[in-house]
Design a protein around this nucleic acid. Structure first.
Lengths: 111, 111
DNA sequence: TCCATATTTCTATATTAATGGAAATATAGA
DNA sequence: TCTATATTTCCATTAATATAGAAATATGGA
């Protein structure tokens, strides 16, 4: 993941409404959720929601698919994992820091 | 972690210079790095760096300690892990999504 | 085709943040 | 105390983003 993509993704998440929406979609899983339902659950007016969904989409954090009259949005889990990996990359120069001090979570390879 | 704290942390990271600085400190580990060295390695003028370090500190993502004439900054790994956990919380409603589809990374409990 | 529902676009206003030079402040060694 | 080094504060300019109502557009069923 490149730095610019990470900044874009982080900026997309750095906003109360969008963070709420994204976390809702993370919890919804690959099934996703219709725009109207998202707005209802998060208490966001349609036009504002549309703006925020576009921001999240532009950042690559969510995807959408048309399903009948509904537009179903879902989290892009690969993008999310890339972002988390980017933040913790080469943590503590790769030493197994988590065993000695509160640091990065243990990576799969270490387990 | 509360939503407001997460937004503040994400906003702090959603900026090229700050993201670079934070990742440098993550890699540096608990030892940390002096402000001057950070600025030198990241190519950021002192006044700008000071501004950004304050933002990261305010967001709780980094800590500082005085050491002789130097101010040593280091990543707050607990805060980072809290943030990552907040983003992936209750992913896919807690089902072991990662085994069937690219989704959240497996949590420790699942391993 | 016509209608009800779902979503997006348009628009204007208001708020917040990034930048870096110069000056101020702090620290420790001589 | 004096000096060199390290860091922070001050400041003005420049730019970007959030908001939600109203209107426009898209979709599928009758």
């Amino acid at each position: 993941m490149e730095s610019k993509a990470a900044v874009t993704a982080l900026a997309a998440l750095a906003q109360e409404s969008r963070l709420t929406v994204f976390r809702l979609l993370v919890q919804a899983g690959p099934t996703g959720m219709a725009a109207g339902k998202i707005g209802e659950m998060c208490g966001i007016p349609a036009s504002s929601l549309s703006f925020h969904l576009k921001e999240l989409t532009y950042a690559g954090l969510i995807n959408s698919r048309q399903e009948s009259r509904f537009v179903i949005y879902s989290a892009n889990f690969n993008a999310m994992n890339d972002l988390l990996g980017f933040l913790t990359e080469n943590c503590c120069q790769g030493s197994a820091c988590s065993t000695t001090e509160a640091c990065c979570p243990p990576t799969e390879e270490l387990l």
